[in-house]
Nucleic acid binder design. Structure first.
Lengths: 143, 143
DNA sequence: CGGCATCCTTATGGATACTG
DNA sequence: CAGTATCCATAAGGATGCCG
């Protein structure tokens, strides 16, 4: 079981309440594109087009919207070089850089555990597609 | 600037590609309720109703769906005690517990930086609602 | 108590076309 | 190049009612 004094402290009474820091942070961070953009900018500033190519599959619309949200939140900084054609470069602010560790942890967890997740899903789908298998009639039933 | 050998290694060439581990992990984890549920279960197993009360504002539908997804992914385990009325208890699996550190980091980041985010948003909204302020005409313009 | 089923509204996000 | 604007399909998610 996972517990730390800190978690007990923070997770106690009214963590997870509607307006608290964790909730608003998750409103910002619990977003696929946000995480990917921050991750992509970790190594250094990047132009719009480069970001788009790096984040395979993102549409121009979603990239623009995500970058605006992050700029507004103070996580990225947008610099326009008034050349022709225009160049727009995005970089993490110090606040944005404070997220890199987090994003890196997610990446690490992904590579360490996603296979296990896939396997669990396969087992689950296997089980639910089975006919009613009569479990042994002792202690708590697990589906 | 944030760089680690690891990040350069992992974030190189084709991280963030469509089918890779990071993408599927984000499909699972970049979800408000998923994070909150894992966080809520960190201290120990909890019954459905307790979870619902703890996660202020979640609907029964979303809680059920989230728990099913997590059960399928092997992150939580569902145990039914066939009493009347029925009791259903949810607990993190070892895989689920491997996420606690991550969730805790997010909580920590939130409490450390969300005020700064709010402030940045206020400044941003201030700036964009201003009339066209003529910037000094030197190097790169920042919006 | 812990769901599932249904209806319905809103948000998300893709495709496409146009612009400085 | 780096957007903005528009339209449209689908998904997310809330409200409500019923059930074992």
């Amino acid at each position: 079981m996972y517990t730390t004094p800190d978690l007990v402290e923070r997770g106690g009474a009214n963590a997870y309440l509607r307006g608290c820091a964790s909730r608003s942070a998750l409103d910002l961070l619990a977003n696929k594109w946000v995480c990917l953009v921050v991750g992509a900018l970790s190594p250094g500033p990047m132009r719009f087009g480069a970001l788009r190519r790096r984040l395979d599959g993102i549409t121009q619309k979603m990239l623009t919207r995500t970058l605006r949200d992050l700029e507004r939140a103070g996580v990225v900084e947008r610099t326009v070089y008034p050349t022709t054609p225009p160049q727009v470069e995005y970089a993490l602010t110090p606040l944005g850089e404070s997220l890199c560790g987090l994003m890196d942890s997610i990446l690490g967890w992904a590579e360490e555990h996603m296979e296990e997740v896939e396997a669990a899903r396969a087992r689950y789908d296997e089980r639910v597609s089975l006919p009613v298998d009569p479990l042994p009639r002792d202690a708590p039933a697990r589906r």
